[in-house]
Amino acid sequence: MSEIRQELHIVEEDLVLYALGIHSDARLHGITAHIALCTLCRAQLAAVDRALAGWSASQLTGELPEGLRDRAIARFRAEAAAPAQQVRAARQKGILLGRIANFRESLTEPLPFQIAAGALIILLAIVGWDDFRHIFEIRQVIHQSQRFQTEALRMESLEAFLHGTGGVSVTMHPRMTEGGEPTGQVLFSPDSGQLLFRGENLPLPVAGKTYMLWITPLGGKPPVSVGICMPDSKGNAAIILPKIPLSIQPLSFTVTEEDAAGAAAPTGPVVLIGQ
């Protein structure tokens, strides 16, 4: 029984390394995909997390440094008041523009004032450069924030998909039962167009070839490409939330062997099929 479990689920050693974040990158993607699909392994991972958190808590002694609590609370309050600060910052920018307009008028003034104006030019150049640098930094932060936001949305979407109802779960098997080793699992929601695929024990395709997953819709429509699923050295492959059209009512899911560049329609031999 335990042998069967080991074949179907992530073994404890791998879960521990995964929870510690020190698993080899080669299998990380496959393990993530499996955990996303497998309730049992998610529960096991949560138990490992809990053990690690509990163990680390038992190893720690000490207290908060003086003032840290106050600083933390001050930061929450500052964060809560952020919109008001943004308004103030915008107002400060308005003041800066006003200063530039006044400076242009001062160019018609006598020499001492022009010297003062020269000093002001230098000062404004420094301030301007500083502003420019800040704008550049802010743009970088915005870019980074957008990246995190996209990642967060993707994970939220994945979580909602996993907890949602109305999805289709399909287990795929080799079309020709040659030992029955390669397997695949698809979780698909026609309404949202979200899909998770996990393949196991897939043999490495011959050079110049790859595997592709297809959805064959109901009503005799042509198969829709889900994407390429190249297995790693252990035979694991995964496709997580690919971009596919909405409202496809699936008749079957198929993995075929195709040219490495991909194909617009399935042409190669069928490796896995499920409906």
């Binding site: 993530t32 955990i35 949560a46 808590a57 995190f148 990642e151 967060a152």
Partner: peptide, 26 residues
Amino acid sequence: RQELLENLLVAEPRNMGRTVEDDFLI
């Protein structure tokens, strides 16, 4: 690199809310 792992942490049946800091458990 760890962002993904943070986001994938999942709920568990027992209430961890108080247990980690619970002296007896520690």
